[in-house]
Each structure stands twice: as C-alpha cells, then as structure tokens.
Design a binder for these strands. Structure first.
Lengths: 142, 142
DNA sequence: ATAATTCCTATAGATTTAGTAGAGAAAATA
DNA sequence: TATTTTCTCTACTAAATCTATAGGAATTAT
C-alpha cells in the first residue's frame, strides 16, 4: 500500500509551486534545492504533470514552472492519479473484467470501500488548503 | 498504492477458512482449487499467517489449516498488516526519524490521514462480517 | 555571444513481485 | 509397517518496477 516517490515528490513539488504562486516562473533548480530532490528526477516527474496540464513551463533565462491553475483549483487527487495511476488498492476495483470472480467477490467490496475513502480524502484537499496548513503550521519557519 | 498479491490472496485464504470454520482442518489443496491460486504460493502466504498466530496447522492425512480464533475475533487489519507490513502510504508516517522534514511536513499530515482512514476500515471488518456479506451476496451460489 | 533554463532520449542498478521446485517430516490408515 | 496425505523448509529465478543518473538539444533573456 505504498505510494512511490513519484506521488510523494509530486505532491511536494506542487505544494512548492503553490507556495510561490504569483511570483512568476520557478526554476526546477530552486525546487530541487528546497525539496532536496535530484533536479533530474524532478524533471521527469514535473514533465508528467505538465503533459497532464497541471503546470506550465517557460523556457530560457528566468524561465521555470508555474501552476496552470490557481491552487484552489488543484487537488491532491489529481496529482496522485496522474503520477501513480489509479489509487485503487487492487486492479479489479477499476477493471472488473480482469477477474471472473469480481462480481461475487466480497473482498473486492472492501477494496472498493478503501478506494472511495482515500479518493475522498485526496479530492477534498486542494493546494490552497495545503498552503494554508503550511502557513499555520510553520509560521515561524517561513 | 497497490496491495500486493500477498495481501489480496491472504484475505481470500482467511475468508475461505472462515467460511469453513467448524468443519475441521481444511487442506491447502482445497483452498488453492477454490481460490484458483497456486498451492505452492499459498503455502508461503499461509506460513506467515501461521507464524503470526492467525491460523493453526494439522499435519498428515485429514490435516490442513484452521483459524486460530473465531472469525469474529480476526479482522482484515491484522491480516493485511501481517502480510504487507504497515499500511501507511509512506514510510515517514510510522518512522518520522527517517526524514528531517517530518515534523513540519504538511504532505505527511495528509498521508497520516489516509493511513488512519484505511486502518479504520480494515479494523472494522472482521472475518465474521465477510462471511455474512458473502452469504448475503451469494446466497444462490453457496 | 553567453548563460540559464527547459526538453528529449537513453541507460542502469537495486529492489520487489510473483511465483516455481524439490526434498524432508509428521500423521493417519490399511 | 508401508503408503498416502498432508504440512515444512530452503533455495532459486524471471520479470517488473522503482529510483534514479547522464548527456546533449532547443529556447530565451541579457
């Protein structure tokens, strides 16, 4: 039931961009330094987010990345789904056809409940919420 | 965020044993056939459950496995934790020391929320509950 | 021109997953 | 006691996934 580094880092990248929203493009180098993640690896992750339309890029000097929408319009569910694929704990939840017992399977019902719960939490938390939490929690450090 | 086959199969094995609770030892061969899982692989999984004290084994002819406790006293949380390790979506939830930012990290707070939710669901569902669901759902097939 | 950036493609070691294989040990039963 | 049925234990392995690293091409501001 682990999230890979893509999902984890992705969430942190997006929060970082949200914290600097309105300050123009943020170069990957800065994010990498603040988040202590290899720039090259970040690049791969943010490319996926870009293709999905959650961030925009500006090339060249003074370039970087910005959120494609205001922080309130992006939630964690979108980010995680893009980077990790479905959040269902087992494949048959989304694709019942892969298993002949899907229709009758009570364990599958449990996995569905879990998916619904996780989905609900992730959808309910926007980047704006995270920014507010961050400011509240770490007032002294910012 | 996927469960491995160990957790999935483990849940099905335990449900199978719960459905036959009170009928004496159930040989692995039978479970393997009903659940369509390789007997040899099942063996590895059930061994872990045995070491953890959730099932007992009886050797020899008419041997097999039985639940070590009544179905009402075993919940899915125990089964999954034994087979998959912690259900936390990221390691830092359980072991904050591995990450220097753990204390201030708002994304970690989200992962904690998710863990709590999943944990709650799994703990709340006992094998007895699953047996009842199975009987209700598949009355015609049993 | 130069420097700072993103963009694109390829590679690769480590770990995990999902099994397979085979011989050994215990118990029931004929 | 010989046989059969079952669990027990140890080892192996192919494939996939994870977690990056590397290098150069393209773009833009100054």
């Amino acid at each position: 039931m682990r999230l890979s580094t893509k999902g984890r880092y992705g969430a942190r990248i997006m929060l970082d961009l949200a914290l600097h929203y309105g300050q123009g493009p943020i170069p990957l180098k800065d994010i990498a330094e603040r988040q202590q993640i290899s720039e090259k690896y970040l690049e791969q992750i943010i490319t996926v987010l870009k293709i999905a339309g959650l961030v925009k890029s500006i090339r060249g000097v003074h370039g970087g990345y910005i959120l494609a929408k205001p922080p309130a319009k992006i939630n964690l569910g979108q980010i995680i789904r893009i980077l990790e694929g479905s959040i269902a704990p087992v494949e048959c939840v989304d694709e019942p056809d892969i298993c002949p017992r899907a229709e009758f399977c009570v364990t599958r019902d449990v996995w569905k409940e879990i998916k619904r719960a996780v989905d609900g939490i992730l959808k309910s938390i926007s980047l704006k919420d995270l920014v507010e939490r961050e400011k509240e929690k770490n007032r002294a450090r910012i």
